[in-house]
Design a protein around this nucleic acid. Structure first.
Lengths: 378, 378
DNA sequence: ATGAAAGCGCTAACAC
DNA sequence: GTGTTAGCGCTTTCAT
């Protein structure tokens, strides 16, 4: 069979039988000796505790650098209260999960934390097992919750009971309960609607998301608000139900496009539905964007790859999780974090592609209210 | 400011100041006392070491269950050689990364392991920092390497030096070096080409992947092989270069479709390029699939969401990482794993959608060799 | 402001 | 087969 050097133990000055993880690594004792101080002093400095003279601090920090010393997390978490590990829960193969992890990792690396992923059924049937994983073997200092887990009551209660802090991304319920970061859906939908209005559209269809979903509500509100700001009445026949799925967009497009006076543009409140609308429109023989402008929300990878490519709103997923992670680390036990804001709302970015264009049969021009903006939010 | 129950410490019988992770948790001492045995016996049983009587084993296992005891990973890894943590390296927001994590987690959970993610620049500029993360703070017992990291020589050498085992997914180089799992690209491409042949196509274009990429080579070989099996000559004018990107597919489609005798079908060796081909074809006014069949490879999410939706090959990413993880765990230090196979090749699944159909202007029928198969490989 | 000693929960080594 | 002892690398007391 094949050789597998990747799997053999490699020797080292400190290697002992059965100890692979020690390869080349220094301990706090080595640093203390090298700097001529006690272990405790090194520890104090590494944990930025008070009562250390600047002189010693520098000496120790130098020794740390020279020896390329990194404190063993497992040893720290034995005596101390922190594990320096954060949990990231995965509910399924959603592309935004990776982006979220990348953001969380940015914050983790900066703060010397690690990120542990665990799979968890969104329905929460394996809740107990999942919680045990988070608290049992390798207890985490905190958890980052993305939709749909961020609105799972049972999970949140379980975390509360276990005493594990958590920060949420775009939570729809119980918003005062924990720190969270969310996108400015209302403003973003407003901006997108204005984009369509500026193009000259006045009959703009809207496909809603599932009821009870906060983002659904906010995006619809933003749409209504923009129409109102431009002196237009929202016509209810142009507002259809959807469920944030491709199929629901496809299904809603039929009735919408068969209206006696059909819209010249459709704003689907997420990309999946927008793609569905485009698919249906093309099947009906409509040329896009001439016969129909379509706009989405989310900027999923597919958005850039259909023809015409989709105008949409990009959410700052990575930034949101990064900030949420910072909130979590700032509030981890043993760290002062009282001054940090608990909530943060981030703007979205309008990505104009070729699925939106001026209408070929323009309606009466709407009154434009103000200038163009590409960034929404603060 | 808002209340944040998620962030307060909760009391517990064993809670001490600064120790949150102990909430409600039992130690090996509790179990030993409860079962009336020594710590070591419990330890032996939990680590399935030999020399324990069945009677004690049961008693201890019962105590473990009753007390809901889970050994603290940090304590185990202090004394023992294992950390019970595996590393998963992220190079960017690729959708397959999540699928891979899910597969790895399946194997991890089964074996009591945890999965730690770290971001690593595919170019390897932060290689040292990344390796330090893997070996330093929370040392991992092994790493799962997906493309493109699985062919990064510097990274592999670093892991070898650090003595960290790794298993790879679909490695292109140095295949005898470590355990790996890969898809049967050759056979899958053969099956896809046959699908097109069975539909009646005889002029089938092929868009290659980047040179030096093993999958590129194998997929091209599969295509050539199938043509040959059907008694057709591969025409070089139908085989164009690509780089596995949407743009490269789009670019290659132009020359291909402007040929004097253009193909009636195109097999792009990945979905991104297939989407590019479709986009270009539609811009040229071709109706799909009537005027042109397009097939891809990978089954990325977008494949199901373009119109017509894309016929493609689904790779068993989750299964592959699951198996790779098992290889890794089986070979982790302290565990016997000599008998396990080091390499494994998995079949892909042909997903027939509406982008492939019989040609509207059929060429001379090719000689069919054998029956249809949907599953490739073993 | 600094250091010495104790001990976290577990497993390796060595008794018995 | 089973128990005892020691100690992993760190942080916490508590002394100085």
């Amino acid at each position: 069979m094949a050789q597998t050097p990747g799997c053999f133990k490699l020797g080292s000055s400190r290697a002992r039988p059965g100890r692979r993880i020690d390869v080349g690594s220094k301990t706090i004792n080595d640093v203390a000796k090298h700097a001529g101080v006690s272990k405790k002093t090194v520890s104090r400095i590494l944990n930025s505790e008070p009562h250390v003279s600047a002189a010693l601090r520098e000496r120790v920090l130098n020794a740390v650098k020279e020896l390329r010393y990194r404190p063993r997390t497992s040893a720290r978490s034995m005596r101390g209260g922190r594990s320096y590990v954060l949990g990231f829960l995965l509910t399924g193969p959603y592309p935004y999960a990776i982006e979220g992890q990348l953001g969380a990792l940015t914050a983790c690396r900066r703060a010397g934390y690690h990120l542990l992923v665990e799979a968890m059924d969104p329905a929460g049937t394996d809740l107990d097992e999942g919680l045990e994983l988070l608290t049992g073997g390798l207890p985490v200092d905190g958890v980052i919750l993305l939709p749909p887990l961020c609105d799972n009551q049972a999970l949140m209660s379980g975390l509360d009971t276990a005493g594990i802090p958590y920060a949420r991304i775009a939570p729809a319920t119980d918003r005062q309960r924990t720190p969270y970061v969310d996108p400015d859906d209302l403003r973003a939908a407003h901006v997108m609607t204005e984009h369509l209005l500026e193009l000259g559209h006045t009959r703009i269809g809207f496909i809603k998301g599932p009821a009870g979903h906060l983002a659904s509500t906010l995006r619809l509100d933003g749409y209504r608000q923009a129409l109102k700001d431009w002196g237009l009445a929202a016509e209810e026949e142009l507002i259809l139900d959807g469920r944030f799925t491709f199929e629901s967009g496809y299904d809603a497009a039929g009735p919408l496009l068969h209206l006696a006076d059909p819209p010249t543009a459709v704003f689907a409140s997420n990309d999946l539905m927008a793609l569905g609308v485009m698919a249906r429109a093309q099947e009906l023989g409509l040329r896009l964007p001439q016969a129909l402008s379509v706009a989405g929300f989310d900027d999923i990878p597919s958005a850039a790859m259909t023809r015409p490519d989709l105008t949409t709103m990009r959410q700052p997923i990575a930034r949101m999780t990064e900030i949420a992670t910072e909130m979590l680390i700032g509030r981890a036990p043993g760290v002062e974090g009282g001054a940090r804001p608990l909530h943060r709302t981030l703007g979205c970015e309008l990505v104009i592609r070729r699925s939106t264009a001026p209408p070929s049969r323009p309606g009466k021009t709407a009154a434009r209210r103000n200038g163009t903006s590409t960034r929404t939010g603060r």
